[in-house]
Design a binder for these strands. Structure first.
Lengths: 368, 368
DNA sequence: GATTAGCACTCGCTCCCAATGAGTGCCAGA
DNA sequence: TCTGGCACTCATTGGGAGCGAGTGCTAATC
């Protein structure tokens, strides 16, 4: 079925895609004859283009226009024909300066996404690190005056702080809470949250009545704290900038969400100029959920990844391509970043840029 | 200078604006003769329109089109001619249901802004409450293992929690911190943050050496906690969903920012359809700062306020109007909410809607 | 057999022009 | 003071001609 595609045809396709990316206009046989480097007449090129069209690599918008690449054409181009171009050294310097590890995580991520957006003139995208590996440093309970409620402060990893209010069935005295905290800190400090949850579960299974009072309190409290979060709730609260959250456990995969910069750059691209398309796209950004699913998918790859047009599976991104790369902290992939732009984007520059940005962000996060 | 504007001319203007708001097209004399209710011929109407044009209330896009209202025309319309229409009872029910005080502040604000956006089909806007009146409920210190750093947890108002990490000059023992907390809680619980800051300042002034050790610790710690925040830093962190913030004191006016919903609705309006206009507008939303200045201004008014076109003073909002109303908690204005849409919006419906939404939100916040 | 030149054809784009019609300004008469 | 009438303006619409880029096909050439 999949016909062989000749060396020469590949070169033609490469030239065609490059030209289309540069100029944004259908490419005709004359231009290709001139620019491909092959010593062929336009007529020959036309014959080759007919082959390419039959293979579904190119299409012509109408009879008397040149050809433009299809998604499949871009695919082949990106996978096999692309000659990447290392990022401009000026850009590299800017990137390195911006991504200095001295600042807070949030502004690091923010400047990363706006750097991506500025350099590419498209939309930059950085997913907030999702540490599967969340280490408990310290836990503390603080009784709130008035009712049974208890404020739980959990310090994880470096000095990241999360807090939530829980409402236990009965009232605990201050000393009970203090002891519980001591117990939990002694037991679990330095362990990661999933592990802790497992330990708790098994501990609860082991004859409850044999636990002494202090441990009992501790386990009861912790049970409520480390319950998996009802999906979404915690994240949305965090993403909107509110510290407290009644309900929603500390699942370890806290603070999902992503930062987007430069959406408005996308308004400049002719292929997205239809207001309806833009609207769909922007709505999709606002929805966040689809986007996060997509990014989740990207996290599993170990290098830069390119989604072309409908490949993402989300309708709003039909005419867009997404270039992503996962970034790592301590050898573990914790998030992805990337760029969203029209299918017709300068892949040869964007791909290495995204790649190097991911590495730099990872490095910056590592040094904190 | 400002010529008298007759009863009849006012009615004409009113009808004209209403028609233009409804239809979005320049209004001609024939239509006005038919709809104004006055028994006048088109020719007479034309004479009146010439007067209105001289007064700067209306303008015609070109010779042979009808007239459209100018900003000044809208102004007069809104100030003097408008007959508001109470919100649809269905809408009221929806609003009341959505704004039930059981949920967290953040989701309350979020659903408020999306309700505003949904009902008006424009962009809804809710400024995060800025409580000048922030009552301290409880303060607690938590030494972080490793270095001198201390995590400070402050519970304010209801059960809102804020935390930050401070780095005192010397290391404090756990018991010192405990005593300091006890002292501060005993002294200041129930007081508002500005008051506390003042007390602290005077206390520090009063011969420092006379303080006993415990009080000394407490005051030293508190001094660092209640220092006014370097403007912006804290807010931005909060707005982006990160709980911790090294640096940036608890100024009481924490968490500035606003929630915007339904920006994409604005894409449907012909008067904003130029991509360049939309881009400016969206960029302005992203900037946030101008917008916040504007909202700040609005907070000072005690009722609904309407900015028409360039009145806001911000270029991006040239062709937009903003309808805002402040909302109150415990009798104090703590924020504003509103709607952004094209100058040609249905003021008679939007104004009462924004008004009632502000009241409902205030009520909902009050009941927490 | 591959390549090329030549040629007729397609089709989007632009420009021009005429027709349309909504709406105006003005003037003279009621 | 109002109104009817009238000439005028001007955005909009639609059709037609001309242009030019680019194609597909065929026949000649290497």
């Amino acid at each position: 079925m999949t016909q062989e595609i000749g060396e020469r045809a590949q070169l033609i396709l490469k030239t065609l895609v490059e030209s289309y990316i540069r100029e944004g206009q259908p490419v005709g046989s004359r231009l290709l004859a001139r620019d491909s480097g092959l010593e062929l007449s336009p007529a020959t090129i036309r014959n080759i283009m007919i082959d390419l069209e039959e293979l579904g690599m190119v299409a012509s918008p109408h009879t008397s226009a040149g050809r433009i690449p299809t998604a499949k054409g871009y695919r082949l181009f990106v996978d096999a024909l692309l000659t990447v171009q290392p990022p401009d050294s000026g850009e590299m310097v800017r990137l390195k300066n911006q991504l200095n590890p001295g600042v807070s995580v949030e502004s690091l991520l923010e400047s990363t996404s706006s750097m991506l957006s500025n350099i590419t003139r498209m939309a930059g995208l950085v997913m907030v690190p999702r540490r599967e590996h969340t280490v408990l440093r310290q836990i503390e309970f603080l009784p709130l005056s008035g009712d049974n409620r208890v404020l739980v402060i959990v310090v994880i990893n470096g000095h990241e702080v999360q807090n939530r209010v829980i409402q236990p069935r009965r009232r605990y005295s201050e000393s009970e809470l203090q002891e519980a905290a001591n117990y939990l800190n002694a037991m679990f400090a330095g362990k990661d949250l999933p592990t802790i949850r497992n330990c708790l579960l098994s501990e609860m299974g082991a004859a409850r009545e044999t636990l002494n009072g202090m441990m009992q309190t501790a386990v009861e409290m912790a049970e409520e704290v480390f319950a998996p979060a009802p999906s979404g709730a915690q994240g949305r609260a965090a993403a909107k900038g509110f510290a407290s959250a009644v309900g929603g456990g500390m699942s370890g995969a806290a603070e999902p969400g992503y930062l987007l910069a430069g959406q408005t750059n996308l308004m400049d691209f002719a292929e997205l100029s239809s207001v309806e398309k833009l609207r769909q796209l922007f709505d999709a950004f606002n929805q966040k959920r689809d986007m996060l699913d997509l990014l989740d998918q990207c996290m599993r790859a170990e290098a830069a990844q390119v989604f072309i047009g409908a490949e993402s599976g989300y309708k709003a991104l039909d005419e867009c391509s997404i270039v992503t790369a996962p970034y790592e902290v301590e050898g573990q992939v914790v998030g992805v970043l990337g760029v969203i732009g029209p299918t017709r984007m300068a892949y040869h520059r964007v791909i290495p840029l995204v790649d190097v940005t991911a590495k730099l962000l990872g490095a910056a996060l590592n040094q904190r």
